[in-house]
Simulated assay, not measured.
Amino acid sequence: MCAKRTGAAGACRRPAAPRALGAALAVAAAGVLLAGCADEDSGVADGATKSSAAASRAPKTPSSPSAPASPSAPASPSGGLTEDQAERKALVPRAKVSYERALTAAIAAVPAAEPVSAELKGTPGGGAAWETEVATADGTAHAVRVDAVTGKADPPRAEPDQDAEDKRELAGRLGRSTVTAQQAVRTATGGQRGTVSSVELGGFGNGTLSWAVDIVTQDNWTKTTYDIGATDGKILRKHVDRD
């Protein structure tokens, strides 16, 4: 009976083995599936992590708003010319009277005077005039404005700020100068084509007496200044003003 019961019990337990094995296999299969899912999930997570890490390590390109703006020069309203060049371009063609004619008109307005300077300048209303200075033998200076279109000279005006020392100094310059304004201009224009916009007797460097001659080149409207020795007629200096 015991053996039978044991056998019976054993017989009763035999069907359980397949069920236990099936359950074990199901659990194992589920484990494999879960492991596969975990592997897949892990792969996605690892890939996302790697992509995120790679993105964090990649050099960042600054966006255009945060990049510093490079300074740029303001646009020129005169086709690339500087302000000074544009002024020369507007002024020089207005003059129909040369510096020489202007000085001749000024000397005619102040008898027995000698030329000291002449400079072309603009006038209100878009005109042009030569602001000239001539002086008598005693060094008394007179300012004479000459219309750069008609050549007509205004009445001369004695320089109000001159004192006795100023007059002696100017008289000394005129007395020492052996080179005329016209000769100085010829020397300057011999090496530079253009229009004379200014000529002035004065001192150069260490006190050497000289004529400063400004010449405007009309192809680019730059100004070149020549310093010409007033006693020997030699070129002391040449300076190009590109402004």
Rank of each mutant, 00 (worst) to 15 (best):
residue 135 A to N: 02
residue 218 Q to C: 14
residue 103 L to G: 03
residue 45 A to L: 14
residue 36 G to M: 08
residue 81 L to V: 02
residue 31 G to T: 05
residue 78 S to F: 02
residue 115 P to R: 00
residue 25 L to E: 09
residue 41 D to V: 15
residue 181 A to K: 06
residue 69 A to V: 14
residue 67 A to D: 14
residue 19 R to M: 07
residue 236 L to E: 00
residue 234 K to M: 04
residue 180 T to R: 01
residue 105 A to E: 00
residue 223 K to G: 00
residue 103 L to S: 03
residue 175 G to S: 11
residue 239 H to C: 06
residue 53 A to S: 10
residue 76 S to P: 02
residue 13 R to W: 14
residue 236 L to I: 00
residue 116 V to I: 07
residue 41 D to I: 12
residue 147 D to N: 03
residue 120 L to Q: 00
residue 183 Q to R: 05
residue 237 R to S: 11
residue 94 R to Y: 02
residue 174 L to A: 10
residue 223 K to V: 04
residue 227 D to M: 10
residue 44 V to L: 11
residue 160 P to M: 07
residue 200 E to F: 10
residue 25 L to Y: 11
residue 66 S to D: 06
residue 197 S to F: 01
residue 30 A to D: 15
residue 184 A to H: 06
residue 130 W to T: 00
residue 5 R to W: 08
residue 67 A to H: 09
residue 145 R to A: 12
residue 103 L to D: 00
residue 164 A to Q: 14
residue 54 A to T: 12
residue 177 S to I: 02
residue 8 A to G: 12
residue 20 A to D: 13
residue 14 R to A: 12
residue 49 T to E: 15
residue 118 A to K: 02
residue 228 I to K: 01
residue 147 D to K: 04
residue 240 V to C: 15
residue 218 Q to A: 14
residue 188 A to W: 03
residue 205 G to L: 14
residue 148 A to L: 05
residue 201 L to V: 00
residue 103 L to A: 06
residue 210 S to W: 02
residue 211 W to C: 01
residue 27 V to H: 09
residue 232 D to G: 09
residue 185 V to C: 09
residue 222 T to Y: 05
residue 162 Q to L: 05
residue 181 A to I: 08
residue 39 D to L: 12
residue 5 R to M: 09
residue 27 V to F: 09
residue 158 A to Y: 14
residue 183 Q to G: 03
residue 179 V to K: 06
residue 11 A to Q: 12
residue 4 K to E: 07
residue 49 T to I: 12
residue 232 D to N: 15
residue 91 L to V: 00
residue 108 A to F: 07
residue 17 A to D: 07
residue 236 L to A: 01
residue 13 R to C: 08
residue 81 L to G: 00
residue 87 E to P: 06
residue 58 A to C: 06
residue 237 R to H: 11
residue 153 A to G: 13
residue 132 T to H: 03
residue 141 A to N: 03
residue 151 G to I: 03
residue 170 L to K: 01
residue 185 V to I: 15
residue 182 Q to T: 12
residue 129 A to E: 04
residue 155 P to K: 15
residue 72 S to T: 10
residue 98 S to Q: 05
residue 118 A to S: 06
residue 87 E to M: 02
residue 57 R to S: 07
residue 207 G to V: 01
residue 43 G to N: 13
residue 99 Y to C: 08
residue 72 S to E: 04
residue 105 A to K: 04
residue 235 I to K: 15
residue 205 G to C: 09
residue 30 A to P: 09
residue 144 V to M: 03
residue 179 V to L: 09
residue 102 A to E: 02
residue 197 S to N: 06
residue 176 R to N: 13
residue 86 A to M: 02
residue 164 A to P: 04
residue 150 T to K: 10
residue 133 E to R: 12
residue 232 D to H: 10
residue 136 T to G: 03
residue 235 I to C: 08
residue 80 G to H: 03
residue 232 D to T: 07
residue 170 L to Y: 02
residue 177 S to C: 05
residue 201 L to D: 01
residue 9 A to C: 15
residue 38 A to V: 13
residue 7 G to L: 15
residue 219 D to S: 07
residue 205 G to M: 04
residue 228 I to M: 08
residue 240 V to I: 05
residue 145 R to G: 11
residue 1 M to Y: 11
residue 145 R to F: 14
residue 27 V to G: 08
residue 231 T to L: 07
